[in-house]
Write a protein that binds this DNA or RNA. Structure first.
Lengths: 222, 222
DNA sequence: CAGCCCTCTTGAACACGTTCAAAAAGCGGG
DNA sequence: CCCGCTTTTTGAACGTGTTCAAGAGGGCTG
């Protein structure tokens, strides 16, 4: 089934070329004809390997996720504070993503389509999603934060959702070096950490439980 | 400048026809040629009034916003509870939007593009955005909720953001009658109300202040 | 009325993503 | 070496959003 042969080479040649052109000229301004020509294949051949232009982005997405995971894990080592860990992971994502910000915009637009397999909520993305949530679990578990135990279980998913929010902000961020997004992270992370530890307070407990419950309920697929 | 003449009729004829076809067949499957033909004008003429297919959605957007504003205001009358008011406004939006859910998906995809004038965060949308935030202000001001006064000023914006989140969820909601979104509203609104009143507690105060501050900071344009 | 200008209208043409029937290239067995 | 079979490759053709040069209409001025 999976022969690593000539065909695989062609496949990755196409995706590499596409990525280069996308980052050079943006997604919209890069035509399939240009990608094919640059990769030295015919247009139809590109469509033999990738069912659409959009699908070419998937490779890009995977690569970024891989880079982030590796870099973030390295940063987590020997960092006990919850806020510290979370901030490191998020800023690390911003660093990894920085070169692609211009192009990332277009990427995100496609990803926002619920029908698209590229959507972070789609079934096709579940592997990548699980990996990201797993990273957030490492952030929580490796830290010294004290939490309502029920919240502890669900917190990684919540943090992933929070990260999606940060990404959404980043996509809209036009400031130099996306420094507005960096500020958002710098300032919202301590807030979240504070809220998380407040979760153990008596007055806060019912609210926290209700949140956990709601997330659980919404997590169920239709 | 603004002559209400033949030209205005043509304009609204086109947008009406487009809306009908969009809801009948979906956005993607409706071609500009079909819209023009159905409206009895040439393709080029349609482009004289609307600079793109995407822009035809704007009319739709405005109409929905208007409907929602009117219906929501009626619901707010004689309803003092904050949670009650907020829930009414959101459920009302879901009712107004229901018939367009299928098509709304596509609508949202376009709106997610930060470059697009349709983005809820864009300058072009500022009027509609202000109106929506204004409605949220009515929700807050007309209620008997007790709040940290600084939070009170900023809460409408926060609620608008929250509403955008609900819309995002709604777009991805594939359940019958979008009942998952309804559940989200039913359950998250009381939570928010509780959090809002907790804002007056001493332990919570610094967090609340920090949130208000952050929002203020982020509100500044680049 | 003639000339002029501005608004509005047209449809052919263009660029792009995508499809598809057909050909080419590889490959295993006789 | 040839024959079928699958995998890969091709480029012309299609449908779509969008553009544009050209013209039609209609009112105002001399």
């Amino acid at each position: 089934m999976q022969r690593v042969a000539k065909s695989e080479e062609t496949r990755s040649l196409i995706v590499t070329t596409a990525m280069r052109l996308f980052t050079e000229n943006g997604y919209d301004r890069t035509t399939m004809r240009a990608i094919a020509a640059e990769a030295g294949v015919s247009v139809g051949n590109a469509y033999y390997y990738f069912s659409s232009k959009e699908q070419l982005i998937q490779g890009f997405y995977d690569e970024m996720a891989g880079q982030h995971l590796a870099a973030a894990r390295a940063l987590l080592d020997g960092r006990p504070g919850f806020a510290d860990r979370l901030k490191a992971v998020l800023l690390c994502w911003l660093d990894v993503a920085e070169p692609y910000h211009r192009f990332g915009t277009q990427f995100f637009v496609n990803a926002a389509d619920p029908e698209s397999p590229l959507s972070p909520f789609s079934d096709d993305s579940s592997a990548a999603r699980e990996a990201s949530i797993g990273l957030m679990r490492e952030v929580v578990d490796g830290s010294d934060v004290k939490l309502d135990p029920e919240l502890r279980d669900r917190l990684p998913e919540l943090l992933w959702l929070y990260q999606m929010g940060v990404v959404l902000f980043w996509v809209h961020d036009r400031s130099a070096g996306t420094k507005r997004t960096r500020m958002l992270v710098e300032r919202s992370v301590p807030l979240l950490a504070r809220l998380a530890s407040l979760s153990r307070l008596r007055v806060f407990r019912p609210v926290s439980r209700e949140i956990v419950d709601l997330i659980q309920e919404l997590g169920k697929r239709d």
